[in-house]
Each structure stands twice: as C-alpha cells, then as structure tokens.
Design a protein around this nucleic acid. Structure first.
Lengths: 242, 242
DNA sequence: TAGATTGTTAATCGATTAACAATC
DNA sequence: TAGATTGTTAATCGATTAACAATC
C-alpha cells in the first residue's frame, strides 16, 4: 500500500521539521518553493531536501519546484496527522494542563478526548474545557471509545504501572514525560505499542553545554582583549623572535 | 584548558543520555561497570561507549572497566552541570509552572533564581516557593544578579521581543519553548548566545508516525489472520500453482 | 524553444563497529 | 602471571553532498 519501505530513520526524523516549516510557509501564503529557497530557510542543503522528499516518490516538478500545500499534505499523510487519531492525557498536573491547553493535539490532527487523574481534588474539575475523569474509570472509557495515544504526565513513580495498564487496554502509543524510560520487554510487557520517551533534561543539558562553552570563550576573549591592550600599549617594543 | 577539541556533534548529543544512565546507576549503588555491561543497559554497542568516552581522554581502566561515579563526575563537568549556573523562567503559565516545580534545574546543578510574568494577576503570587516578579523589572534584576539561562515559556507571539531583551541583558543561553524558532542573526540580533529551541510537536509527530505504522501492520496482521483462517478451512484444496 | 529545477545516481564524507595491542 | 577490559586504529557502513541527465 504505502511505498514507505526501507526509508532511513534519519529521514523520518526530519519529517516533523519539514512539517513545521511547510506549515509556516502556508501561513505566509507561499504557494510554490524550490529546494534551493527552502534550503535557505531551513538551513540545510537543497540536495538533502530533494533526496528526502525523493524517498516518498517525488512531490515536485522539474523546472517548477514544489507546491507547498501538496508537499505539506503528503507529509501530513506520512506522519499520520490525517489518521484521525484520538488521545487522552493521564496526570493533570501543570505539565498535563500545559499540553491540554496548548492545542498541540488538534494542531496535529489528533482529537483529545479525555483527561484523567487520581486526585479526588482534581477529578470532576474543568481543565481546558474538559472534565477530568477518575483514572479508575479508564478501562471502562477505553472500552467505549477507541484511544490511540496516551500522554503520560504522571509522577515518575507511577509511570510503569500506568503504562502497563494502558498498554493492556490496547492503546497504540505512549507519549511519556515521566522521565522513566519505557522499554517494551523491559519495564513494559513485550508488545508492539509505540513509545516516545521525552527527556526535557537532555535538551536542558545540551543548552548547559553550549552555555559553558560560551562562558569559556568569553573568558578567553577577555584575556585576549587584555593581551591586545597590553600589546598595543607596548608599541615599538619588539618581541624576542624575529 | 579543556581537551574538548573537534569532538563530533553526534558524541556531544549523546552525553545527556550517558548522564541520565550513570545517575541511575549511582542511585542503584553500582560502583563499577564495563563498557559491555553498560552497552546492554543503554542498548548501544560497547565500541560506541569506549569510543565516546575516549574522546574526552579515557575515563576507564584496562581490565577493570569504569568507575561509575568518576565517569559521572567527568560528564557533569563536560556538560557544565558543575558550572554553578543560574536560571530564570519567563512566562509563568502551566508550562512555566511545570518546569519550576520539576526540580529540573537543581537536578542539573543550575540554580533557579527568579520567575517573571507580565500578568498583574500572577505577579506577586507564589509559585513553587518563588515569588513571581514583574517582567518590567528584569533589567534591574539582571544588573543585580548574574543570570546565565533564561527559560522562555511565554506565548509564541512574545518570543522574539522577549528574547531580544534577554539577549541584550547578557544572558548566556535561552531554553525556548515558544514554538517560534530563535535564530541568531535572523530574528535575534547576531550574538553568541546559546539557543535551545524545543519543539514538543516534533516528538509528538514522531509518535504519530509510529502509531500509524503500528495500526497499518495491525490491519495487515488482521488480513493475514483471516487469510490464514480461510486457508486452514480450505484444507486439501490445492492452489492453482504447483 | 530555452531556462529552471527536479529526481536520482555517483562521490564524498563522517559515524559506527570491529579488532586487537596495550595494560591494569 | 593470566584474565579482563580498555583505548585506539583500521574497516565498514550509512548518510550527506555533488553532479547531471531527465523533463517540465
């Protein structure tokens, strides 16, 4: 059915970024774009763009370029944005609320259909226009409605048990923010459920690394600046060499 | 000073993951580990581990393996976790609150020293043990205290203007959750500030892609299942071929 | 038609893995 | 010393880039 055979993971991993930029282009009413123009915007090589899109069978036209809307639609299809998926959020703390508020689901074609928590204080309250349900009812809920994706924003300690329950109920994917790595066959019964473990800390550490580099080079610049000053003040005095 | 010259970006990008696993090992009181054992836990090749750590000058000992705590400390140093950095959060919505609550900063050696917002309703209130300050006071604040990192959890529309202000004040890095891509020299005055743009949507789309694949193969399995059934029901009846 | 730009093949580059000598 | 396991070099593999013929 789909021609998505043997496509490198590196290409797949870039698709969300294409999705993001193409969406942006549509918003600014760009109808048509060449790989060269797009490459400048996305700061990649035009070769990579042509190669990447080529894997899915060529969305462009020689001498013309790419129809933005068409490519966008295609990439949406590939990513499953048009699959009509449903999602629930489990754990309605600040992060759960942030995700519920963010319209991240509808923006990607996924319908948010339920919020769950175990805290009596929160159950029954309204969050982002949804009533928060008791997690104890999730089994019943999943029997009535087909749930494709569960977002896990529970405390880390609850991750494994909630994930096991969810997987048992036939959910197809878990978006896991707990910090506990879910691995099928390790801390989750071996099954084919899709897992996306999110580690905000990893991104934060990458930033720290760059900040550290930055600060170090600042210190260095500072030293060189002083050195510069010293040298220019010593005009006419020759160095030992030469 | 540091021997971190010409280290591939791919290696650097893996460091936060090492950090995470080594931390875990320390928590479970593992003192010593070989690249082979660690490779099984992290599901990479032992070669990669030795190669990666080798870039920083070899943290292990032949015939013995690696001292977990020592390697952890080294990686912390490299990542800047021991740099004594400071951070502020700008934009105290649900996501800002989630990050303030999460202890993500202290866990990575960074001190959270201020929360800022522009909403009169929120300013002055207590969030995660911090008083929320008026964003109008941030310039003053930065003059009194050195701020290394700013976390941007403001609405997307405010991203560029707030970032420009922050950069102007000498902040060294921005952890940007707004969804607007910050690029030095494009929508941010050209400067050497470290930028980490976070796109939760990208991670979500990757999940959608996997879920879609999953559902497709389920459908296929289903078909094959029925096919299987049909065939076993048709025992004895030969196919056209053969 | 001539010009532009893709799709795709070939060449290059970098990253990962394998192997093994060094050494604890 | 013998066994284990690193650090590091060499071999393999994959991903990116360049080039160009195909074609709109």
């Amino acid at each position: 059915m789909s021609a998505e055979k043997n496509i490198p993971a590196s290409v797949i991993a870039r698709l969300p970024r294409y999705h993001r930029y193409l969406r942006e282009l549509i918003c600014t009413d760009v109808r048509r774009i060449s790989s060269l123009e797009l490459s400048r915007i996305m700061r990649v090589t035009p070769s990579q763009i042509r190669q990447d899109l080529g894997y899915f069978g060529g969305f462009g036209q020689q001498g013309y370029g790419y129809n933005v809307k068409y490519v966008y639609t295609k990439i949406c299809d590939i990513l499953g944005v048009t699959g009509g998926f449903t999602a629930v959020i489990i754990g309605i703390g600040n992060l759960g609320r942030a995700l519920a508020d963010d319209k991240i689901f509808e923006k990607h074609g996924v319908e948010l259909i339920g919020l769950f928590d175990c805290d009596k204080e929160i159950i029954g309250s309204d969050v982002a226009g949804f009533e928060v349900y008791d997690i104890a009812c999730i089994s019943e809920f999943c029997k009535k409605r087909s749930v494709d994706i569960a977002v896990l924003t529970v405390p880390r300690t609850a991750c494994v048990s909630v994930a096991a329950m969810i997987a048992e109920l036939g959910v197809k994917g878990i978006w896991n923010f707990t910090g506990e790595e879910l691995i099928s066959g390790k801390n989750l019964p071996d099954c084919s459920i899709a897992l996306q473990n999110v580690y905000l800390g990893d991104s934060f550490l990458s930033l720290c690394f760059d900040v550290k580099k930055q600060k170090e080079s600042d210190v260095l610049d500072d030293k060189n600046g002083k050195e510069e000053l010293r040298r220019s003040g010593a005009e006419g005095i020759e160095s030992d060499e030469a």
